[in-house]
Structure formats: structure tokens, C-alpha cells
Amino acid sequence: MKIKTGLLLACCLVPASVLSDELTLRVQLAGGAGPVTGAVVYLNDGSQASPLRAEMFQKDRMFHPQILILPVGSSVDFPNRDNTQHHVYSFSPAKTFNLELYAGMPETPVLFDQPGIVELGCNIHDHMQAFIVVADTRAIGKTNEQGEVTLALNFGASQPPGSLSLNIWHPRLPDNTRPVIQEIDAASLANSTAEIVSIELKPEPRNEGPLDHLQKRFREL
């Protein structure tokens, strides 16, 4: 039986006088059952972050980190620090690539030049999964253990547009290939009331099962 868990995103909006500084948000379970950690939240305030070079490594047949946040134009290295080979790939529209069976460090990093959600897997170890969130804004962050995140806003001297797109993404969304988008009236940012968005999550995945025949073949180098 498929179980869905409702979420509420409570946006604690700051007054317009400090709009150019930051916006604090809180993600919590529906009914106040507890905070939600690891939700990626971002806002289209017009800011752009400089590309960087990051790393997502494999260890203990897992990706580290499981969620990586990047500005558009960034590149990522995928070092294998296991004693087993991996075959890293993505079929996501935002970035399709294939790092065939390897150990150690691939020769060149992978460039992520389009915004979107990139889901990663391993052809040898089916349970391995990770995500890269590529965004074209600096107003982005991930909720902490209290379900809170503070976004640094930068409208500069210009007025904010009539509406802003608030993006909320979590790996257990029913469709985790894209964020849930909530349009916020910029005028509402001056109000003290909270904007609330309801989303659904799939249940926690089961623990890793035993290795299948193909996985056992590549267990040791």
C-alpha cells in the first residue's frame, strides 16, 4: 500500500523594509508533527551565483553528499573511494551523462550548465541514488534539523517583480524530477502572515537488500 505524507511549508516572511537582506522559511510536517530536514528551497530574486568546482564521491556504496546544490555553470568531480567499481550516470533532462565502470578519479569533471534537478544512479548498485540541484539564483538553501532555512535576497536598487516563484524540492516528492512551485505576490512580503504550501512525500525507502549476482562480480577490485 502506497502511503503519502503531507507537508506544509510555512514561510515566515520578513517586512518589506528588510526584503533586500533575507527571508526565513520553515518546513514542517502537516499537523505540526515535526520539522522536515533536507528540503531545498529557492527564490527567483534575479541574483546569480558564480560557478564553482565541487565533488560528489562514492564511499560504502553510497553517494556523498546525497544532495548537492550548485550554481549554473559549475563542474563536479566524482571520485570513487570504494573498494568496488561504480558506473555513474544520469538520464535527467537538465544533464545527461555516463561515467562507465571505473575506480579512482575520472579524468575530467562533469559540467552542469542548465538549471534543474539531476538524479544520479549507479548501473552496478541499484540502490545508490543522489541528486544535484542546479539553480540560477543565490537565494537558495537547504532546511536544517529544525526545518528552517534563511535565503539571502538581493534585489538591489530595483523593486521586486509583481510575483516571485518559490521553489520547494525534496527527494521524496512523488515527482522528484522537478520542484513544487508556489507563486508569491511580492506585495505579500510586507505582511506578517505566513504563506503556506501543502505538498506530499513518499515514505522513507527501505534499507539496502543483499547484493545481486552482477553486484557481487564487481564487489572487489
Rank of each mutant, 00 (worst) to 15 (best):
K2N: 14
I3C: 07
T5G: 13
L7G: 00
C11P: 00
L13V: 09
A16N: 09
A16M: 13
S17C: 11
V18D: 08
V18E: 13
V18F: 01
V18N: 00
L23R: 04
L25G: 03
R26C: 13
R26E: 14
G31S: 09
G31A: 10
A33E: 13
V36D: 08
V36C: 11
T37P: 06
V41T: 00
Y42A: 01
G46L: 03
S47W: 00
A49S: 14
S50M: 14
L52W: 02
A54S: 13
A54Y: 03
M56S: 11
K59I: 07
R61D: 02
R61M: 10
M62Y: 05
M62G: 06
H64Y: 12
P65R: 05
Q66E: 09
Q66D: 04
I69M: 10
I69Q: 05
P71H: 01
S74L: 03
S75Y: 01
D77K: 13
D77I: 04
P79A: 10
R81F: 05
D82Q: 09
D82I: 04
Q85R: 15
V88W: 02
Y89G: 01
S90P: 09
S92T: 06
S92P: 09
P93K: 04
T96M: 14
L99Y: 07
E100K: 07
Y102N: 02
E107R: 09
P109N: 08
F112W: 05
I117V: 15
L120Y: 05
C122W: 06
N123Y: 06
H127V: 05
Q129V: 13
V133C: 12
V133I: 15
A135C: 10
D136K: 12
A139G: 02
I140S: 01
T143H: 00
Q146G: 14
V149H: 04
V149C: 11
T150K: 01
L153D: 00
F155Y: 11
G156K: 11
A157S: 13
A157T: 11
P161Q: 07
L166T: 05
N167D: 01
H170V: 05
P174L: 09
P174Y: 01
P174C: 11
D175W: 03
D175S: 03
N176Q: 06
N176L: 03
N176D: 12
T177M: 10
V180T: 07
I184L: 15
S188K: 10
S192L: 09
I196C: 07
S198A: 11
E200G: 03
L201Y: 04
P203F: 07
P205Q: 05
N207S: 14
L211F: 10
H213G: 00
K216Y: 05
F218K: 05
